[in-house]
Design a protein around this nucleic acid. Structure first.
Length: 580
DNA sequence: GCCGTTTTCGGCCCGACTGTTTTCAGTCG
């Protein structure tokens, strides 16, 4: 059983325990373990085999035993028993905003409600409002919450949230009473999908800022508004939270609301430890207890980290996935930045399914300052995308040669995005493949194969010496389509052995590889390539989101294929082709 | 269920907001 599955079972156990009303800290222990397992860079099977699970943070004797059972036998009686005891509908019910484990349990015990549908019916029959601790408003809120879930709103692509976030930030910065403002939350940590958007501002007149914010254009509903905090929903369904604090507290509020929650807990613990004996919250860093406790002034986030003996930790790393320990040891990576990229691969044109000409795409890439651009239209089997037949490839090559003399400002590479066929072969004979400057291999069909078949297929492609980069390795479409079933450990191993690079597809609908897998690939010595998968000139700028993913994966410029000059990449490739 | 520079029991981050309540529980982040 793989890490992701083990982790999600541990998460589910935590929820089941909460629903049973058990010690909440016990539930948290399972949550912590789930996170630890998910962010492992070591091989889980090997850890289990060596009985070394207990060395991991937050995993003691009981959890070690449970995880070992899960990994070695593929099931866990403790989990199966829990599932039998808790009606499955309750897990659905606690996804309703405003309904947590306590009330879900109450509703189940007193009204026999055990599904979303039954919950909705009970609300409509006015049966929740009469329960102790409930009322009209709670019932109404739950009904609205069910509706919200049904519409499947509430989750947005990073790209959409980024655009909206920047507009909202500009609105706040224009407000006369705002001193400082910043995006916080998961958007600042650059997660690929954003649930809600968090903003932090500082002001001497918070009430005026809150008031202006809730009256802003585009606000569809005010979900809550107090002295220092407001929650609104925009017409798009995006929920936006604003917190306004005194300017001296701004860095603390920014740090706190950037999270992640796990990072914050770890930072608080650090502050409280015997070494510092401080108290950290969203208002400051304090010595001693009580409201009169003297605060330690910090002008910015860097100062907070400094007071706690740490260098600045970038928001993208704040997941309590080892960043604090690495910072402590002075081993934080110098995270890759957009200007580190020397060129880009994976650019489509109107020769296949792109919307712009080769020349427009090339000039677009040159305008963004890249030294080389790798053009790669679809290959012959990609009928849906007007893939290039062999004669088209030759025609395209002569057009590219002409383009090279017209646009000398950038090196133009002729590549292909070759379909990986069902048996794992690439889409052209070797003689043709060898004539491309580079080859991206991607799966575009046959998503429903078994895991075993798909793994065999992709591993064979990765072992092909003509494949330069494995494109969008899981096929997922965020908020759209699940990844296909594949053993990514095996794919990463194959890439490490054969020297193929793996793509971080920067298209905001894909962002595939995800950070955990990219980090794992890097640990295995695989180079990652941050590719726009652009179908128009605007799409070239999506590289930004790929860089975000790479940073969340702890990647430095050294770990990224296209942060290297083309000559070096060509050498790597020549060596592989010679061996094949 | 985990963990230990006041330790092997008794804690585990903590504040804001809401709705239901006359002092607080539940939820959220």
């Amino acid at each position: 059983m793989d890490r992701a599955r083990v982790s999600s079972i541990l998460e589910e156990i935590a929820l089941l325990l909460e629903l049973r009303g058990e010690n909440p800290f016990k539930a948290r222990a399972f949550q912590n373990a789930a996170r630890t397992i998910l962010s492992l860079t070591e091989d889980l099977d090997a850890l289990v085999a060596a009985s070394r699970l207990g060395e991991l943070k937050g995993i003691g004797k009981a959890l070690e035993e449970k995880i070992s059972t899960l990994v070695t036998t593929g099931s866990l009686p403790y989990y199966e028993d829990l599932k039998r005891e808790v009606p499955p509908g309750l897990l659905e019910m606690i996804k309703v905003p405003g309904l947590g484990p306590k009330r879900a349990r109450q509703v189940h015990e007193l009204l026999g409600v055990d599904s979303l549908a039954a919950l909705e019916y009970a609300c409509r029959e006015n049966r929740l409002a009469s329960m102790a601790g409930f009322g009209e408003k709670t019932q109404e809120k739950i009904l609205k919450g069910i509706e919200f879930l049904r519409r499947n709103l509430g989750r947005f692509l990073l790209s959409e949230a980024t655009v909206r976030g920047r507009e909202l930030l500009a609105f706040l910065e224009r407000h006369a009473d705002v001193v400082r403002a910043e995006i916080a939350g998961s958007l600042r940590r650059r997660k690929e999908v954003i649930g809600d958007l968090d903003l932090v501002a500082s002001s001497a007149a918070p009430a005026r800022v809150i008031s202006a914010f809730t009256k802003m254009d585009g606000v569809e509903a005010i979900l809550g508004a107090g002295e220092t905090k407001a929650m609104v929903r925009l017409a798009s369904g995006l929920q936006v939270d604003l917190r306004v604090v005194d300017d001296a507290a701004f860095p603390f509020a920014l740090h706190y609301f950037t999270g992640s929650k796990a990072h914050n807990i770890a930072m608080r613990r650090r502050a409280e430890s015997a070494r510092y004996r401080l108290r950290l919250n969203e208002y400051g860093l304090f010595r001693g207890e009580g409201e009169a406790a003297p605060g330690i002034p910090c002008a910015d986030e860097e100062a907070i980290f400094r007071e706690l003996g740490l260098p600045y930790i970038a928001p993208e790393l704040r997941e309590d996935a080892g960043e604090i320990e690495a910072a402590e040891r002075g081993e934080l990576p110098r995270l890759i930045e957009r200007p580190d990229l020397k060129g880009i691969f994976h650019v489509h044109s109107n020769w296949s399914d792109g919307r712009a000409t080769l020349e427009e795409m090339v000039r677009g890439a040159a305008a963004l300052g890249y030294g080389y651009v790798g053009l790669s239209d679809h290959s012959r089997s990609a009928g849906y995308a007007r893939g290039l037949k062999e004669p088209d490839v030759l025609k395209q090559r002569s057009e590219i040669e002409a383009l090279r003399s017209r646009v000398p400002a950038i090196r133009i590479l002729h590549g292909i995005e070759s379909d990986i066929l069902a048996d794992g072969a690439l889409d052209y004979p070797d003689e043709l493949l060898r004539q491309f400057d580079f080859v991206i291999g991607s799966v575009h069909s046959g998503f429903t194969m078994t895991e075993e078949e798909m793994t065999k297929r992709v591993v064979r492609a990765v072992e092909n010496p003509f494949l330069t980069i494995l494109g969008h390795p899981t096929g997922r479409l965020l908020l759209g389509r699940e990844a296909f079933r594949i053993d990514l450990d095996a794919v990463i191993d194959a890439a490490a052995r054969s020297g193929a690079a793996i793509e971080i597809n920067a298209n905001p609908h894909r962002l595939d590889f995800d950070p955990l897998r990219a980090r794992q690939a890097r640990a295995s010595g695989v180079l990652l390539s941050i590719n726009p998968d652009a179908h128009d000139v605007g799409g070239l700028s999506d590289v930004e989101y790929g860089v975000d993913t790479a940073r969340r994966a702890w990647l430095t410029a050294e770990d990224v294929l296209n942060a290297r000059p083309w000559e070096e990449i060509a050498q790597i490739q020549d060596r592989r082709r010679a061996k094949g």
